[in-house]
Design a protein around this nucleic acid. Structure first.
Lengths: 186, 186
DNA sequence: AGTAGCATGTAATTCGTTACATGATTTC
DNA sequence: GAAATCATGTAACGAATTACATGCTACT
């Protein structure tokens, strides 16, 4: 994962390892944290593979290492962007990818989002079937927290679907303020 | 993680490794998948540590290994249940824990859920601050997908808060059907 | 007789973290 | 001159996966 985030971050701007981490913290860091222990080895690996080029900058007594992406690196990143969203299991991996969606052509975006929405709709059906099973039990109260996790799962999948539909159409993103003005559900 | 799930699953019923995996697939498997490659070594490790006891069952020509939890194992599991929800980073770890909340005294549950709700409220504020920064930019359209992930993050954190409040009060869990009967927000 | 499923395990690999190590530069 | 932060890295460990290896048993 981090391997591709690095390429994505360097795709339009060059960084040193240290600065890259800072840049990540204030952006994608909201849902993905990296440590130096993983970042530096990945930068070296990419450089060996030819996905990045490193140039040493002298600054006083110290050398900074600036990393730039190569054409090959851009291609590797683009290929990863093209792999279906469904192949990444957890929420974070998917978010990470959408985070870089600006860099993917509209057709591919729509395709991936539509496909992923379809998968979510199927998954929702599965979860709702399971829900009905629990819901019909006599001793439901014994399973309150198990049902609660299922309930949470269903809510999140629904939210996913809503979100995928929204961004597929590139509809405006409106955050309704915490103040309960409308009649909403609480 | 799996280490504790295993104890949680075996807390009220004994299984063989194979059956345990099946049992997990049809329950907690909704949000946590395990492979035999991780399951079997964990069962052995717990047995060595004295958290589980293994008894070989002869069945025809084949031996099954049935695992039972020990008092020590129950204690290890209980201690894990008591560690704050916030210490687990991602959504799945938290869900896994809540899945086993039936086995935690009411006081500890409330404490953990309240504490975690507080953390989520703080986090929501952070995200909303970041959102306002992006929202005020002139060239917003260049950041559509970056904002979309932030938007998603905010929606999920809000959903988290709603959920924590719900289950802290042990309120009834009601799934509103997909059919858009009410006037809701869409 | 062959295949699917039961049943258990190991080895290699992946992807990451935490802790450690080192030293330069800036700020108080 | 001490502390914070800049800057880069390595070593040990952790938690899991995938692929491999083995053999039994039930079904068609």
């Amino acid at each position: 994962m981090l391997e591709y985030i690095v390429l994505g971050m360097l795709n339009h701007q060059s960084y040193t390892g240290y600065d890259l981490k800072k840049a990540m913290e204030s952006s994608i860091g909201v849902f993905y944290k990296a440590s130096f222990g993983s970042l530096y080895p990945i930068l070296n690996k990419h450089t060996l593979k030819g996905n990045l080029v490193m140039t040493e900058q002298m600054q006083g007594n110290r050398t900074k290492k600036l990393y730039e992406i190569t054409e090959q690196g851009k291609e590797v990143f683009r290929e990863w962007l093209l792999t279906p969203l469904g192949d990444q299991e957890n929420t974070n991996s998917r978010l990470v990818k959408v985070y870089f969606f600006d860099q993917l052509p509209e057709d591919n975006r729509r395709e991936q989002l539509t496909e992923y929405e379809r998968k979510n709709l199927n998954y929702l059906k599965e979860l709702e079937t399971l829900w009905k099973y629990y819901d019909q039990l006599d001793n439901k109260e014994l399973f309150y927290y198990k049902m609660a996790t299922l309930y949470y799962g269903i809510s999140i999948v629904k939210e996913n679907i809503r979100w995928y539909q929204l961004i597929r159409e590139k509809k405006p993103l409106v955050i309704t303020d915490g103040k309960k003005s409308k009649n909403a559900n609480n």
